[in-house]
Design a protein around this nucleic acid. Structure first.
Length: 124
RNA sequence: UGAGUCGGCCAGACGGUCGCGGCGGCGGGCACCCGCCGACGAGGAACGUCCGGGCUCCACAGGGCAAGGUGGUGGCUAACGGCCACCCGGGGCGACCCGCGGGACAGUGCCACAGAGAUCAGACCGCCGGUCUUGCGAGACCGGUAAGGGUGAAACGGUGGUGUAAGAGACCACCAGCGGCCUGGGUGACCAGGCCGGCUAGGUAAACCCCACCCGGAGCAAGCUCAGACAGUGUGCGUUCGAGGGCGGCCCGCCCGAGCACACGGGUAGAGCGCUCGAGGCUGUCGGCAACGGCAGCCCUAGAUGGAUGGCCGUCGCUCCCGCGGCAGCAAUGCUGCGGGAGAACAGAACCCGGCGUACCGGCCGACUCAUCCA
């Protein structure tokens, strides 16, 4: 688990990051990254939430996938702007990916969504 | 040594590094939070949610019906559809294994195809007797017959005899099976033996049904406490002659009872408790064939809530494959050394226990059976 201040835990926050106004999204074969920024959280630490559905695998596979994504994100929190909420959604292919592959795809996708937020825009 | 049966256990190990959860301690601080240290932190099935309980709420959890479940006997247990022992039936040379194992003389239904006939059965062929015809080979009609053939999963006991025109439990002996009685053994299911009877009875209850026994309902989003939010309006019924409610159905009884139902509109779903000390685990001992129980000592062993118990790296061990060697052997093959490669299952607590069922790479230990060899 991530430190408590970096955890996204309310259902409403998940919905806002995935579907809310002013959100950005970028995806690949392994994962999809959603991001949003709201004025009420300006200056607060970034938060991350994970979505791993049953399509990914059984409980053991889902747990392992979440733990790897969580471990990969723990070292990348510094690179995320203050006040940003991120939701990482795992695709079924993520279950077979190695840790290095997951790290590579996150390094590619996270700068892309945060840049889209900065340009004021909902890059869909 | 080979083949096999049963039972139990394990579920890679160690180290480094970066993290997480609740708990305890210390400090900053004392609203809330942060830092450091310490021990602890998934399974044999945590799984499926198929049974049984505890616990919580429904006033008590009452009677009957319906529905549902269970089904050899005795025991164990909080309880069970579980477990143990035994009985009966079946399989195996054996260790042992398998059985949804009450009732088909309470009633109803069904039994395809084949076959002449399928449950108050049935004369197709055959066998026997009589009458008639005759070309003396036989044929037709009437009657008797269930011993033989043929069909079928199943054809109204089996073998031998008496008997007869031919036959038949028509009669007799023995055997099988059925019913009744008696004696002995066992708590019992049942077993052993004797006598008598009528001579013979199909299967299916996982079809309806009958019998005996069990069962109130809902579930931790149970339930309790606190905090917070909003906004009511209209219609109908009713206040001991009573609406409505009592958590899946119906009736009776009992209880609560001043609000309830419907339509439109509005709001909330946050925190804490429940939440882990329990039919608890381990060891020893006693009783019991055993399941299990009694006693004594020691131990405390996950409690998350977008959901912790992990991510990454290294070393060693295990299994399999390939290559090159060594030893034993006629050979198949077995053991072993080095190098390279691959693999490591099924699966993740969510109130807690007792079971069942299902999934699973492999490894270890013990008891026993059969065959062969040696002594």
């Amino acid at each position: 688990m991530l430190p408590a201040q970096h955890r996204l835990r309310e259902r409403a926050d998940f919905a806002a990051a995935i579907r809310g106004p002013g959100g950005a999204r970028s995806g690949s074969r392994l994962v999809v990254v959603h991001a949003s920024q709201t004025d009420t959280r300006a200056g607060l630490p970034p938060r991350v939430g994970l979505v791993v559905s049953k399509a990914v695998g059984n409980a053991v596979v889902r747990n392992r996938t979440k733990r790897r994504l969580r471990a990969a994100m723990a070292g990348r929190l510094r690179g995320i702007p203050m006040g940003t909420d991120l939701v990482i959604r795992a695709n079924p292919a993520a279950a077979q990916a190695t840790f290095a592959e997951l790290e590579a795809v996150l390094d590619q996708l996270i700068p892309r969504v945060t840049a889209r937020l900065a340009t004021g825009g909902g890059g869909r």
